[in-house]
């Protein structure tokens, strides 16, 4: 894979966020290439979600820059919003709308035509076999399906970059596996994926990753490279070395 900057999807430099005296994200820098699956790992409170919210333009950074497709998120948030999809930590589709109504709404606000929305929804529901769920209220669906739908809604308008905040938390291993299949599929189609997780086994599914603790990046690179650097056999060991035993117990 080539490493020149033209191929960068995301470039973060000295990004910092403070809340009063508390520094949630401490001047971090990293970059993500197009079509890459990039993992942000860390314990709760390590600063993953804060980083993601800044990249999506939901939270203004205290200092530093974040470029998505060479566009500054803080300066031109509206331009960036067309390029990204976001799945938040909380299930945030409308529970009192049906599956179809959710897709129609989000497709509509992203400027897709009524025809495109209809067609794409039909393809998607056939391919993933949720046709009979289309007219059910999302509140009545099992959690695994909710998570998968939230991902598909985030990806519905074909954004070049998708942010996933703890997408697999609370679902069983089987659904997690299915969920990662969806992620791979998108990445193969050229979409850049940024995913936060606290499941250490999921680290191995990423092309590259950054491990955060106390607002800073403590490890950065390919999974194999990180294991090498910390002379560890698995991610758990890396974590232990970085954050001490407490982080693991959490």
């Amino acid at each position: 894979m080539n490493y020149n900057t033209n191929n960068l999807s995301i470039k973060v430099e000295n990004l910092e966020r403070r809340f009063g005296n508390f520094t949630a994200v401490n001047k971090i820098s990293f970059s993500v290439r197009r079509g890459e699956i990039f993992g942000l790992l860390g314990a709760n409170g390590a600063g993953k979600t804060t980083t993601l919210r800044m990249l999506c333009g939901l939270l203004a950074p205290t200092s530093g820059t974040a470029l998505i497709d060479n566009t500054d998120v803080a300066r031109q948030p509206e331009k960036v919003r067309f390029k990204i999809g976001y799945m938040s930590q909380r299930f945030s589709l409308y529970e009192d709308l049906t599956v179809w109504e959710n897709f129609r709404f989000y497709g509509g606000v992203y400027g897709m035509s009524a025809k495109d929305i209809r067609k794409k929804f039909e393809d998607l529901s056939q391919r993933l076999n949720f046709g009979e769920q289309a007219d059910r209220l999302t509140r009545d669906l099992p959690l695994g399906w909710k998570q998968k739908l939230a991902f598909m809604v985030a990806a519905f308008h074909n954004p070049p970059v998708i942010f996933l905040d703890e997408p697999t938390s609370g679902v069983d291993p089987m659904v997690r596996r299915q969920f990662w299949d969806l992620i791979y599929e998108s990445a193969l189609a050229g979409t850049t994926i940024i995913v936060t997780t606290h499941y250490l086994d999921e680290a191995m599914y990423c092309d590259r990753l950054a491990i955060m603790a106390e607002g800073s990046i403590k490890a950065y690179g390919t999974p194999a490279g990180v294991l090498d650097e910390f002379k560890a056999v698995n991610m758990q060991e890396v974590f232990l070395k970085i954050a001490g035993k407490e982080a693991l117990l959490q």
Partner: peptide
């Protein structure tokens, strides 16, 4: 309260 506002806020809705 339901968290759906975040999903709206990342869209290009003016």
């Amino acid at each position: 309260e339901r968290g759906t506002i975040e999903q709206i806020n990342v869209t290009p809705v003016k």
